[in-house]
Amino acid sequence: MEKLLGFFTSKPVSIVENDNFFKKAFKFIFVFAAAVIAIYGIYNIISVAIDYFDFVFDLDAFPIIRHLLLFLLCLIIVAITYLFVIGALYHRSKLILNDPNNIVDIMPCVFKTFGVIGAIVPISIGLMGFLAALLAADPFIPMDGLIGVISRISIVDLPTAIFGYGVDSFKEYIDQLFNFGLVVLIVSVFVAFVNLVGMYLI
């Protein structure tokens, strides 16, 4: 009975204090997160694109052209963003095997990865917001889940992308372009820099 009790009381500690436990655990977490984001990204791009096209093709000819152009630009930005995030997570899963098993030494690398991811997402939001203001169209942003996750670890609030369709005059267009589109882009660069520096300093 004592041996059985000793097994259940000492085994968990032995597993956790194994030389490679933290390395293997974080490697699995990063690889799993990369796979989940890849699947989520593909699904979200397709599902949001369907709704986006339903909205776009109810518009007049010129707004349709602007929205389709913005869709292509946003699709490129979104694809690069997902690939960047997936690549950062997967690359860290390989690098972490070279780190000491001590959790104190591993965690700074984890935060650095969060910093890199926390930098690319706001820049993507800023670019799409600026393009939306430039083309006076609503952006295609199939990243709600990813933005929600990053907003929880971001040191400062993420910028909010604007929906540029609906300006009624050239004056409103210029106001939107400079007072919203350009501001969102500048704020996104600031947020990205703060997240990157902040996470690297933790």
Rank of each mutant, 00 (worst) to 15 (best):
V36Y: 10
I162W: 00
E2R: 11
D51P: 13
S169G: 02
G41Y: 07
I86T: 05
G41L: 01
F53W: 14
S169T: 01
D19R: 13
L83H: 06
L97R: 04
N20A: 15
D175H: 04
F178W: 10
L68S: 15
A34G: 04
D54N: 15
L134K: 09
D51H: 15
D138C: 14
I39W: 11
I174N: 05
L69W: 13
F178V: 02
G181T: 03
A137Q: 11
D58M: 10
I153E: 12
I29L: 14
L69T: 14
L134M: 12
V36L: 09
E17Y: 13
A132F: 09
S10A: 12
I186Q: 00
V183P: 01
M107E: 07
I155H: 05
I65N: 15
G41A: 03
L5D: 15
G6N: 06
N98W: 08
L97H: 06
D175L: 10
I39V: 04
F62D: 08
F28T: 00
S93D: 10
D175C: 10
V189Q: 12
K3A: 04
N20D: 15
A137V: 00
I117M: 02
F28E: 04
K3R: 14
L177V: 12
F84R: 05
D99N: 11
A136M: 04
L182S: 11
F170A: 04
I123T: 04
I96M: 00
F30Q: 01
V149M: 06
F8D: 02
G198A: 11
P142S: 06
L5F: 05
M143F: 01
V183D: 06
V116T: 08
R66F: 04
S169N: 03
A137R: 12
I29D: 08
F32T: 10
T113I: 05
I39C: 06
K23M: 05
N20E: 15
G166D: 01
F26D: 07
F30E: 06
L5I: 00
L73R: 05
I150P: 11
A88F: 07
K94W: 12
N101K: 02
K11D: 10
M143A: 05
A161Y: 01
L95T: 08
L5Q: 02
D175W: 07
S93Q: 05
F180E: 14
V48H: 13
V31D: 11
F190C: 03
L4E: 09
V149T: 09
A38N: 04
K94G: 04
D144L: 03
T113Q: 03
